[in-house]
Amino acid sequence: MNKDGHLYSIVFTFFLTAFFTAILAVTQAVYLQVITANEADVHRRAILKVLNVPDDSFFQDFAANVSQQFLGESAVYVIYNPDGTPQSYAFPMNGQGLWGAIKGYIGVSADFSELLGLEFVEQNETPGLGGRIDEEWFKAQFSGIRITPGQPLVYGEGIDAVTGATSSSNAVLGLLNNTLEEVLALQEVLSP
């Protein structure tokens, strides 16, 4: 067959593509479980962190300690007191940052009066600038904050933005306020 002919080019490219795609498909299949488990771990750690339970035994036996419930499309994670009353709730938080999606969780006390914590599982902000929203000092500022319905959180009153990363900081605050608003709307459903 003529090496520079159309038919040869098509046949060659077709089989080469099939070959490499097959290799990648096999690799993906082999590692899929590990990758999914890694991702699930990141989420579990984040949920436990916003619920203020850094206890490793909770992580080991996540399903037994944290109950996952669905309200329509949104998930909620609940830890119960020994007497069966809810101790705290964790809600997923999704939205847009400066460069890409920001995903994370917030923890809220059982009576919805206190923000327990904030943690990210995915963010694509500039490393070293906006990416500093993922640093401990920044996230720790949101622990133990009083939630007042109808009063969005603002920077300056006990919460500092990241210097040089105004857009990312504002994105986080906007995201947090939106999520809190949605969460407060769920309060009646969760604790009648």
Partner: peptide
Amino acid sequence: WIPHRVRMIVQTL
């Protein structure tokens, strides 16, 4: 075996 005219596509692949 790489046809000259599609070599860049093959390299990228």
